[in-house]
């Protein structure tokens, strides 16, 4: 009976993780369209500022390092999960959550500054594509943080069940994927904007 259950769990894990991976690929493609749009429209500054004028590279680097570290701590959380260590799972996902939240706050302050200056998404095609690309990433981060919070509540109350282990694995895939997208945002938007 237990053997049958383990077999069933293995099949469910396999198809669910694969299915989620496929979904992540489609999400990546959505970002691809945003990147294509940014690449085509970033020169259309109309009468507004260009990237060089509004991007603060050290600030962007800080955001990048924070997010990268959070991807690392998410990995450590999964390492703890694989060792069935409930407390370490809570610790590392907790740190990931705080780092993710800091990233979001930093990003929002950057947006706030731009809007106050009058350089909002309505100003030019360049600004529209910048805001939409970075905000889409930010919305994904927000969704991930919500997901993380609910998952941590579940871990605290029920402990690590097979279903929860599977869902935490999916969450870590999602979080790693968001950092990968950010590598390209950092490179294409901020670094290239400064060249």
């Amino acid at each position: 009976m237990i053997h049958h259950q383990n077999h069933q769990e293995a099949i469910t894990n396999d198809k669910t993780i694969f299915g989620f991976w496929v979904y992540l690929m489609t999400d990546l493609l959505m970002f691809g369209v945003l990147f294509a749009t940014y690449s085509v429209l970033h020169g259309n500054i109309f009468n507004g500022p260009s990237g060089k004028e509004i991007f603060d590279l050290p600030f962007a680097l800080t955001e990048t390092i924070i997010l990268l570290t959070s991807s690392f701590t998410a990995g450590l959380a999964i390492w703890a999960l694989r060792n069935n260590n409930k407390n370490q799972v809570l610790l590392w996902f907790g740190i990931t959550f705080l780092l993710g939240l800091s990233f979001l706050v930093l990003e929002l302050t950057e947006f706030h500054k731009l809007v106050l200056e009058g350089d909002s998404w309505r100003r030019s095609a360049f600004l529209s594509s910048y805001f939409s690309l970075v905000s889409t990433h930010g919305l994904h981060i927000t969704a991930g943080l919500f997901w993380m919070l609910i998952s941590l509540i579940k871990v605290k109350s029920q402990g690590i069940t097979p279903g929860l282990a599977r869902k935490l694995t999916l969450l870590s895939l999602f979080w790693h994927f968001l950092d990968i997208v950010w590598i390209f945002i950092f490179t294409v938007v901020y670094l290239m904007g400064a060249i």
């Binding site: 749009t37 085509v40 429209l41 259309n44 500054i45 109309f46 998404w121 309505r122 100003r123 030019s124 095609a125 360049f126 529209s128 594509s129 805001f131 939409s132």
Partner: peptide, 11 residues
């Protein structure tokens, strides 16, 4: 926003 508008740099 101005992705496909006729003004403000849309294409």
């Amino acid at each position: 926003m101005h992705f496909f508008t006729l003004d403000n740099g849309g294409n």
